[in-house]
Design a protein around this nucleic acid. Structure first.
Lengths: 243, 243
DNA sequence: CGAGGATCAATTGTCTGACAAATGAAATTT
DNA sequence: AAATTTCATTTGTCAGACAATTGATCCTCG
């Protein structure tokens, strides 16, 4: 938890960390205006460009926003769920794409997380959530759909399932897991038979949620998890054979 | 998913986004060296400070690292789980602390996620994980422990439980949920009676995992979830009364 | 010929000073 | 009183410079 090398860090990194810690500690509250760049330069005994680099670091993390003009400046940003989604998805995508996480591992994590919210979703899902899921099922049944569109619809279906739990923290956490998987899923070529099976399972899930049967939804998700992993294994085998 | 206002964005933000997209798309691969700051300044037709601001934005997201010296420069960073943890915890902490997420909601999310990995942990936990959990239980039983230390130990216990699932993606996702809750948990004052009850439930969880009984672990986690929420409600009531 | 040290060139880190652009507030005019 | 102009403040961008770091190169000496 401690900073690794505070002595060898850039000045801009040190300053950014100072300000970040102040925000986390609550010393700087939401919408509070930070001193102007010139003032901070004096305060930290550095030049304005150095302060600016620090501020850009914070802006990249959505911790502050800046505004030009007479009453402008840098303001502490209220971290929005949308901002958090974006960061989460970027981070997860990169983690999965370049950190030798196997499809298997990612898939297991995704379905474990999804199953966590199945009972909540069964209890709380609105008619809207159910309607979204049904609509995506219809879309997925269309013949001639590209694999990419099929995957996108799959993501939308599962997002609706997660959102049905009515817990924004869960939605935010799972957005990363589900969306970051999409590039990996896109590598799979779905046959008509595969799609029919998946659509069938999706329908069973929707039915279960409609009847507020969390237990049943959980079971079907388990089956879907197994099936997806089987498909991925086959896709991987084919790819290996062809090279 | 699309950028909101590319036309009103800073030059440094635009450049940072360009490079970020190139990294995500795989056009820039891990450990690849970016052009020098001067070269990029020419390439993008901006000044060097502007390029530097862009690079600092990327560095803040752990997308690149920089090195001084003759063979130095900016290199595409391999996103490490550790980096991802850090970002996740910062984001989640801020999201919970200043986005009016109720303790109830956060708590529900946390235990839902934890229960997701209970069966996996029961199956795969090593003796090490179990030993860590037992050790933390002992620490939690010490009389005279401050509330903060008790909470820290609680986090360590649950981290061991999650890590026991042996899925780094789950560990990374849950790190945020569990650790971000700590500041909220610290607001609770635990009586000796509360602590005994929690330690008892922790012991039951450890026992269940030792016997590879995921079902049982899940049940106890459910109880712990309910109990924690009760305590939080009481703490909130007391706080409300005193003000 | 090899090893060790001095030199060098490339690159990032930092500073200074300047000007442009935006923007809300104050002063002025109608 | 309303509309317009002016103005001060602040961020955005630029140019050029120097310091610090660091690997590579070259040179000297054994």
């Amino acid at each position: 938890m401690s900073d690794r090398k505070p002595e060898t860090q850039d000045l801009s990194a040190q300053i950014a960390n100072d300000i970040r810690d102040a925000i986390i500690a609550g010393d700087l509250i939401v919408d509070q205006r930070l001193p102007s760049e010139s003032e901070m330069a004096d305060q930290f005994s550095v030049s304005r460009p150095t302060v600016r680099e620090a501020l850009k670091r914070l802006a990249a993390q959505n911790l502050i926003r800046t505004q030009r003009g007479a009453t402008g400046g840098a303001f502490v940003n209220r971290m929005s769920f949308e901002d958090a989604y974006g960061q989460q998805i970027t981070t997860s995508t990169l983690l999965l794409s370049m950190n030798s996480v196997s499809f298997e591992t990612a898939c297991e994590a995704r379905y474990a997380l999804e199953r966590a919210c199945a009972p909540l979703s069964a209890e709380r899902r609105s008619a809207d959530h159910l309607a979204t899921m049904r609509a995506e099922i219809v879309r997925q049944s269309q013949p001639g759909l590209t694999d990419e569109s099929f995957c996108a619809s799959d993501v939308a279906f599962h997002r609706a399932l997660v959102d049905g739990a009515g817990n924004p923290v869960l939605s935010y956490q799972l957005a990363g897991a589900v969306e970051a998987m999409q590039p990996l899923m896109n590598m799979i070529t779905f046959t008509t038979r595969d799609r029919n099976r998946i659509v069938g399972l999706h329908t069973e899930i929707a039915d279960a949620l409609e009847q507020r049967d969390g237990q049943r939804a959980d079971e079907v998700l388990d089956q879907l998890s197994c099936y997806t992993r089987t498909l991925a294994r086959e896709a991987l085998d084919r790819r290996r054979k062809s090279t």
